[in-house]
Nucleic acid binder design. Structure first.
Length: 637
RNA sequence: GGCGAGGUAGCUCAGUUGGUUAGAGCAUGCGGCUCAUAUCCGCAGAGUCGGGGGUUCAAGUCCCUCCCUCGCUACCA
């Protein structure tokens, strides 16, 4: 039976249009999947869209559409983009698909029957204007980002997943399986998250507030919320629990960006464990693209959507750049300049030109037809040995999801072939009429090109197929084994009608950078960073305030709650992190220095309408205070 | 503030359990070839491996400390 390989991208949330990040993850998954196909495995590649939740309902309303209309529209943007990027997914799942809903309910029921779901109280910040909860992180300075009003802390009954029950198991599992989460830094990060209690997971929302979701199978008044809906797509897409596909392909490798590490590394394995489903095979985490806008078509004065560069440089050039430039686990730098440089150096100069010069010589010296009788000399054997070694390294790299390293290993081989041609100098052999040797040399080069073209297929399927067609090999991935291809450099059928040339990657114009201008600009920026203008300082409203009252914060032991008179109608409520250094009584009556126009914000539930200035000393903090009688509210400048 | 990751040539990164003159690609400069997309090949320059201290016969590699960047997190207003 064939080895199988199942790889997924996250399902993308349809509140935004596809961008570079989506494209990268999906191209990466496609490349990895194609690599495994090339290795002779039976593969399944899943991507799709995540379509439930309140944000979707709101976005739809704002456009005057029904949620279904809205998600249909955005989802199709994703679905239609992938073929344009030569991405061949086996399935495109949508969380609004009926089979997915059924599957989620089935999963929930199993976990519920096991006793891992309980009904409990949930507290959170709720904005009545938005009719929704906000996490503390979403709040801007303690306010609802839309209504600019403080939300209300309310309690609500909800269903919870007993995630904490599996914390110890998960920690051990990750310790025992170093390959489970990779690259290593992310594995360590997850282990460090697991040092703290992970708590239980709130997995429902009452229907009275949110209907756009999947109904809880054991309570019609609730829908499931976010992760129980989304993560289960990896199972529902292949027909868990009974389908042939599920039996064949599960467990999966999940490819994600670092922002959703926690749900995939902690929620998902514990969910699977609870439901008694085999744990997924591995999580592979990549970084972000830092888009350098100053280097993007600066001369035109407009910022270019990175995705649009696929049209300018071709899908293959675009895919190659992304796969070559992002080092696995690191963040990558995306700029048009880097893209052109990479395109010219690797694709145009090294690979493209190598193909072209070879075909040209075969045509010039042998009219496009080589003889198969050959005998290798030491030089030839050395090149072949090096080829096998670098291709094996290429395989190892791609097996561990490291596309940049894999392509670098391939480039070592490409450079070696160019060097081989130079040191053999076929043009001299031709002059000397040493045609047998010349035939052998070109034959060796051509077979190397075949291997190189095959190795490029996962990253640049279209260009790879052009190369292979040119040398007479129609690639049938279904019956392929790249490993065998790497081991055997001696037998193959050669086309006796090779083309005169093949200009795959025409060089791109090098980006013109106006260096002096740029330097001037950057030094100016530095200046701007280390100084603030006077008018910025003037915006800070510093005033003297008299502390009328001070008390310990009810819900925090490092904070004090003060009432400060600023000469206004009502004294201000101010929270200060000085409980370690001051007793409440010591502060009463002091004239302190305050920032009076700081945006109010809640700290552990108490509103703070200003900031008390203090000096940082070796042994703690000393509040700035003014001696003598001063009118509260006096301005400081 | 806490935890984690990082700081190696102009740029992107490798550097195995500490061991001879710290590597690769790109970029730069010089030379060679002419089959080729002014491409290819060779040579060269450049790094007190973030700073300081320590362990050791020997440290980019181990320990301490400080600085900076990024991520998560917080009882930072």
């Amino acid at each position: 039976m064939k080895k199988t390989f199942y790889v997924t991208t996250p399902i993308y949330y349809v509140n935004a249009k596809p961008h570079l990040g989506h494209a990268y993850t999906t191209i990466f998954a496609d490349t990895i999947c194609r690599f495994h196909k090339l290795m002779g495995e039976e593969t399944f590649f899943l991507t799709g869209t995540d379509e439930h939740g309140d944000k979707i309902v709101q976005a739809a309303e704002s456009q005057g559409k029904s949620p279904q209309e809205y998600v249909d529209e955005i989802s199709s943007l994703f679905k239609n983009l992938w073929p344009e990027l030569d991405i061949e997914n086996d399935k495109f799942i949508r969380t609004t698909d009926p089979y997915h809903k059924e599957c989620v309910q089935r999963f929930l029921q199993i976990v519920y029957d096991k006793g891992d779901i309980y009904f409990g109280e949930y507290g959170g910040y709720y904005c009545f204007g938005c009719e929704r909860f906000y996490t503390e992180k979403e709040l801007v300075d303690g306010m609802c980002p839309d209504h600019k009003k403080p939300p209300t802390y309310i309690h609500e009954e909800n269903y919870f997943f007993r995630m904490s029950k599996y914390q110890d198991w998960l920690r051990e599992y990750i310790n025992d399986n170093p390959d489970f989460i990779q690259p290593e830094p992310y594995r360590k990060e997850v282990l460090s998250m697991l040092k703290e209690p992970i708590g239980d997971l709130c997995i429902s929302r009452p229907k009275k507030r949110l209907t756009w979701g999947i109904e809880m199978p054991f309570d019609k008044n609730f829908v499931t919320y976010v992760w129980f809906d989304a993560l289960i797509n990896y199972l529902s897409a292949i027909g868990w629990p009974d389908s042939e596909e599920f039996k064949k392909f599960w467990p999966a490798y999940h490819i994600i960006a670092k922002d959703i590490l926690k749900p995939h590394a902690i929620f998902w394995p514990t969910m699977l464990k609870s439901a008694g489903v085999e744990i997924y095979k591995g999580l592979r985490v990549h970084g972000y693209w830092k888009v350098d806008e100053t280097k993007m078509s600066k001369s035109l004065g407009n910022v270019v959507d990175p995705l649009s560069l696929k049209d300018k440089y071709g899908v293959d050039g675009f895919r190659y750049f992304l796969m070559r430039e992002m080092h696995f686990g690191h963040d990558g730098n995306f700029s048009e300049k880097n893209m052109i440089e990479r395109f010219n150096a690797d694709l145009a100069n090294d690979i493209g030109n190598l193909f072209n010069r070879t075909l040209s010589m075969i045509n010039k010296y042998f009219k496009g037809k080589l003889k198969s009788q050959i005998s290798f000399e030491d030089m030839d054997k050395e090149l072949i040995l090096l080829g096998k070694r670098s291709l094996n390294n290429y395989i190892t790299s791609f097996e561990s999801f490291n596309s940049a390293e894999g392509l670098e290993n391939l480039m070592i081989f490409v450079r070696a072939v160019n060097k081989y041609i130079d040191s053999v100098a076929p043009w001299t052999l031709f002059k000397n009429k040493d045609l047998d040797r010349l035939n052998t040399v070109l034959w060796v080069v051509l077979i190397c090109l075949r291997k190189i073209a095959l190795a490029l297929w996962p990253v640049m399927p279209s260009s790879s197929e052009k190369m292979l067609n040119a040398i007479g090999l129609a690639l049938d991935v279904k019956s392929f084994d790249f490993k065998r291809e790497v081991d055997d450099f001696s037998t193959w059928e050669i086309s006796d009608n090779l083309p005169k040339n093949l200009n795959l990657f025409p060089r791109k114009e090098v980006f013109k950078e106006e260096k002096p201008k740029k330097e001037a600009k950057s030094s100016k920026n530095e200046e701007q960073e280390s100084y603030i203008d006077f008018d910025v300082f003037q915006k800070v409203d510093l005033r003297v305030g008299k502390v009328l009252d001070a008390a310990k914060h009810p819900n925090a032991d490092k904070l004090l709650c003060l009432k400060v008179d600023l000469g206004e109608q009502k004294p201000r409520s101010v929270v200060a992190g000085i409980a370690k250094y001051y007793k409440p009584d010591e502060l009463i009556g002091k004239n302190v220095v305050m920032v009076a126009n700081l945006k109010p914000r809640k700290l552990r539930g108490e509103i703070s309408e200003g900031m008390v200035l203090a000096v940082h000393k070796k042994d703690g903090l000393q509040v700035l205070a003014i001696d003598g009688e001063i009118d509260p509210g006096s301005k400081i400048s």
